[in-house]
Nucleic acid binder design. Structure first.
Lengths: 231, 231
DNA sequence: AATTAGATCTCGACT
DNA sequence: AGTCGAGGTCTAATT
């Protein structure tokens, strides 16, 4: 990894064109040739970048660029597309290279998968006497998160999201349409379950007769802990 | 901006929990307190990070952490949520601070807006004798990208995407439903136009009687160039 | 390899 | 401040 702090201007040419005027920025060149251009603010997204696989070549600035003050020019070319980054270096203020080695990588504990597992294990939180049919119930257009039956034995399809938005309701609607064509299952009703449900999504769901349930992740985990302590 | 290359381990606690085992990484601390943890590969996304607004405090490692080799510990706490990053520093290999100042920001030239403009200007590419009604035709649920009339005078709503996926078809369907309630416009048919249309989206659109059109950005630009040269 | 759904999405525009 | 749509999305899982 090579770190350069420099006064520079940057041009990107590819799926769009973008230009960064002359300013002081951090340039990170990774081992795979990829480049990040960061300013001293914003979030983790760089102002500009080139994704691997790509190659960096250093060229002489054109007479016009040299006239404007450029001392060097990087051309970063993507190997698969014709995306290209052109960095004009005017003044290098700091430079350091270091070999980091290979990273062991991130260990994650997901949320939506965990929510699905917890809710499937405690399906009675949806209603007294409810029973699980199965998780990831397969249909022609994809898996339904949870299929279960209410106390009367009627089928219910549950769609789970971390944040419930309008496209989640659309997705569940498509599943319900399909499931209701199956005489062995019909009539199938729907539950839209999420940690947080956006007002528009709630309105659309309610309008379509889909029940909305707000999931409390910590509470579900709590139930889980209590029950695992009991048994 | 503060750059640190160090052997470190990182834990994130917030919307999910994640752990990075001990390894050599780049730590970037920006002026607003935000932190990026980068390895020497991957894309522009850091292995782990904390978005602003947040504060970084350096604390003594716990006895257990010190035992394991930690010499310092950063706690990066988000100011609005309870997201938190804990960085255990085992060995600092390089450190450098630099004031970058405020960045003038990125100048962009978008694609979807440009596609919409080009198609509106050359609406006849959709069919002989077609005429533009208007771009961004406003409805109660949002603007339709392009409203036009075919050679027979029938109204057509066009939804434009760079990449045509299923939710774009859903969006156009909602517009068509609404537009067809207006007796002055009905019957309104739909065109789903994109540089690239995913098979599932094409199937759904076709099933609903929506015509799919693949847009050639370069060709449209070409027509534009030729016509501007002619006139 | 291609497709799809999720993301600690991020980012901007608009209400 | 919240919502919505787009992204040079990126990324991981699955077909």
């Amino acid at each position: 990894m090579r770190l350069v702090i420099a006064r520079c201007s940057v041009d990107y040419l590819g799926r769009l064109t973008a230009h960064l005027p002359l300013a002081t920025r951090l340039l990170v060149v990774k081992n795979d040739g990829s480049v990040l251009v960061h300013s001293d603010g914003g979030s983790y997204k760089p102002l500009n970048w080139m994704s691997p696989p790509c190659t960096l070549v250093e060229v002489e600035p054109t007479p016009e660029e040299a006239e404007a003050g450029a001392t060097a020019c990087w051309i970063v070319q993507n190997a698969k597309s014709d995306d290209r980054l052109r960095v004009q270096l005017h003044e290098v203020l700091h430079e350091h290279s270091h070999d980091l080695g290979v990273d062991p990588g991130l260990v994650k504990d997901g949320v939506e998968a965990h929510l699905q597992k917890l809710l499937a294990e405690h399906i009675h939180t949806l209603g007294e006497g409810w029973t699980l049919v199965r998780r990831e119930f397969m249909t022609a257009i994809g898996p339904v998160d949870i299929l279960c039956k209410d106390a009367s034995g009627a089928t219910v399809a549950v769609e789970i999201k971390r944040r419930g938005e309008i496209d989640g309701v659309e997705q569940l609607t498509r599943y319900l349409e399909l499931l209701n064509r199956d005489p062995l299952l019909a009539p199938v009703t729907g539950i839209f379950a999420a940690q947080e449900i956006k007002p528009q999504a709630r309105t659309l769901a309610t309008d379509r007769g889909i029940r909305c349930v707000t999931l409390d992740y910590d509470a579900l985990r709590g139930i889980d802990d209590i029950e695992s302590r009991l048994f």
